[in-house]
Design a protein around this nucleic acid. Structure first.
Lengths: 141, 141
DNA sequence: TCCTTTTTATTGACCGAGTCCATTTTATTG
DNA sequence: CAATAAAATGGACTCGGTCAATAAAAAGGA
């Protein structure tokens, strides 16, 4: 990802230390919760309000700069990679989240068998399962 | 769906008026929230506690009798149809949720391009877009 | 540069969805 | 018809997130 300040400028947003740090945190730590990102930001610039973090994440997600994923039973996660239609693999046991490229090609999943008249703009795919570590633990028992 | 009491019996669960009414509500009103279902149940049997509804929904979802879907930015929805690997189409504007059969065949979506060592047991697909009604409203403006 | 305007950050109250827990009620089983 | 196990109730509580009023900081123009 480019310089945080450039990203903000390109979208007509004011450039603030908080926003820069949020962008850095997201790109440095993918699949993190707002809470975790807040801690990262605090480590970098000393202090931020919860609200500033949510605000920044919300705006960036709206602008398509970052992506928000909201897996069942978990707070929202944010990631750097956006707009490339990749998907996620989530461990039911430990919550580990991993990127997977789309199974079917470029922007493929945008085709439902019957769209019921909807105009579809995104296909969100979450593969649920058990990660290698948790499989190993389960096997040992 | 069969008789609620039979479903409960088959899974070794006590048969109570509350549970029967919850099962009826789910099958009568697909894609409803726990809250909406609670109202339905109250209309049928007079009163239920929030907890009894959550408890029943949780157990039935665990047993695979019903399915819980948790779309981003919305409370959980419950539906009757379970185990047939169908997906959902959700309107970003009004939240309307519609079933779609799987685009690729029988139980197809269970294949990620790279499973990263995970054992995958479910592929959850949500198509986001705009429903016909909301498209019409938008066009009129 | 300074000053004004606009945007953003802060703080703390608040909200909705869901869970926890102690108690009472209801099913089930001998 | 007990005795016991399972479920329901009600109310407090948690967590993720939003709202709204005020303070602070950026952006833009003379």
């Amino acid at each position: 990802m480019r310089e945080p300040a450039d990203i903000l400028r390109e979208h007509g947003l004011s450039i603030t230390a908080q926003r820069i740090a949020v962008i850095r945190a997201v790109s440095h730590r993918p699949h993190a919760t707002a809470d975790a990102l807040t801690e990262n930001v605090r480590a970098e610039i000393g202090a931020v309000s919860k609200q500033a973090v949510y605000n920044t994440l919300g705006i960036l997600a709206d602008k398509g700069v970052i992506r928000r994923i909201q897996p069942a039973g978990s707070p929202a996660l944010y990631e750097d990679r956006a707009g490339d239609n990749h998907h996620h693999l989530i461990c039911r046991t430990c919550g580990k989240t991993v990127d997977v490229d789309c199974a079917t090609g470029k922007t493929p999943c945008l085709t439902a068998s019957d769209n019921a008249g909807f105009r579809i703009d995104e296909a969100e795919v979450i593969y649920w399962g058990t990660c290698p570590q948790c499989l190993a633990v389960a096997a040992r028992e």
